[in-house]
């Protein structure tokens, strides 16, 4: 099993020394995200998120299937994650790594289990037909903080996605093509996003520094992630509902500091939600070329 190249001793010491002076190597503030870019594809439900050098591509697809027998009135919503060897040489094909397991679990808990997508609205005929919505998360480049980037990508893509319109008459379901009827958006109940905090303690910063021996960073890049001693991922929506918290071992952190992290996450998520809403609006404007009247016009574009 190949391993990720670890930061050298020099890099480690330089990073620790800088962190003691509250400086990050890329010049960001301790609680600042990297530059976030969000682009949508030509198709509905394709989102491409760039968070610094981390890049995540998400594609939403929908198909009609039979629901699970124990949940006849619910549609199906699955999130699948894929880390390919293209992402990083330490990742092998067809062998789920720890990073991937945790990533898919966190997305699952934040977005699916918190009920972000109303699965009951995906039901077509109880017990026999329902929509199956599938979100494929592809990590194209790994430079730390995959969880936050992926959650942004999935939530943005779900909001962007349009599923074909349907009509039901008795046991007969008609699925209309895009030409026949305008496709409809999914019914989303809330928009949870993840914010990950990285903790650094005595092990890295050394004992008895002038200031407190602990540092908390938001949106760690790959090196900061490799050097961290603990982390907590908070899934929260913009209304201040915490959907999940995951501090899976690592450096013990004071309970008050953790509550503080949750509060900071609440603020960050509001900013991120606003950013996503802005990008969605810009994309909608780009798609809408003068509305229905422009589409119904019979005259051709002339070259003057």
């Amino acid at each position: 099993m190949p391993r990720e190249v670890e930061p050298s001793l020099n890099e480690k010491q330089f990073f620790a020394k800088a962190l003691q002076e509250n400086i990050r190597l890329d010049g960001r503030a301790l609680d600042q995200f990297r530059a976030l870019e969000l682009d949508f594809g030509d198709e509905y439900g394709v989102a491409d998120v760039k968070l610094g050098k981390t890049r995540v591509h998400t594609h939403i697809t929908a198909e009609v299937t039979t629901p699970f027998p124990d949940r006849p009135f619910d549609g199906i919503f699955t999130i699948t994650t894929e880390l390919s060897p293209m992402t990083s040489p330490s990742i092998e094909l067809n062998r789920p790594s720890e990073t991937e397991t945790l990533l898919s679990r966190l997305l699952e808990k934040t977005i699916r289990r918190s009920g972000a997508l109303d699965t009951e609205s995906l039901c077509l005929i109880g017990g026999s037909k329902c929509w199956s919505i599938r979100a494929d998360v592809h990590v194209l480049s790994h430079d730390g903080n995959l969880v936050d980037a992926s959650s942004i990508a999935v939530i943005a893509a779900l909001q962007h996605f349009r599923k074909p319109d349907t009509s039901t008459e008795g046991e007969q379901v008609t699925v209309y093509t895009v030409r026949e009827r305008e496709p409809v958006p999914l019914s989303l109940l809330h928009f949870p996003l993840c914010v990950t905090f990285s903790f650094y303690g005595e092990g890295l910063l050394g004992k008895g520094g002038e200031e407190e021996g602990e540092a908390v960073l938001v949106d760690a890049n790959l090196m900061e992630e490799q050097l961290r001693e603990g982390s907590v991922t908070v899934g929260i929506n913009r209304h201040g509902e915490v959907c999940q918290i995951a501090k899976l071992g690592g450096l013990p952190v004071d309970a008050v500091a953790l509550l503080n992290c949750v509060k900071v996450a609440g603020v960050k998520v509001k900013e991120l939600s606003k950013f996503i809403a802005g990008r969605l609006e810009a994309d909608a404007k780009k798609r809408d070329k003068g509305g229905l009247m422009a589409e119904l016009r019979a005259d051709n574009d002339r070259v003057s």
């Binding site: 201040g240 915490v242 999940q244 501090k247 899976l248 953790l258």
Partner: peptide, 30 residues
């Protein structure tokens, strides 16, 4: 938590809850 301190080693929550409710829950848990 680690021993007698308030230092939290593991914190896992999988259900939705209001942010204001969290402080009380964590205090009781610790």
């Amino acid at each position: 938590t680690l021993g007698d301190t308030d230092d939290v080693s593991v914190l896992v929550m999988e259900t939705r809850v209001q942010i204001g409710r969290l402080e009380g829950m964590l205090a009781v848990g610790v």
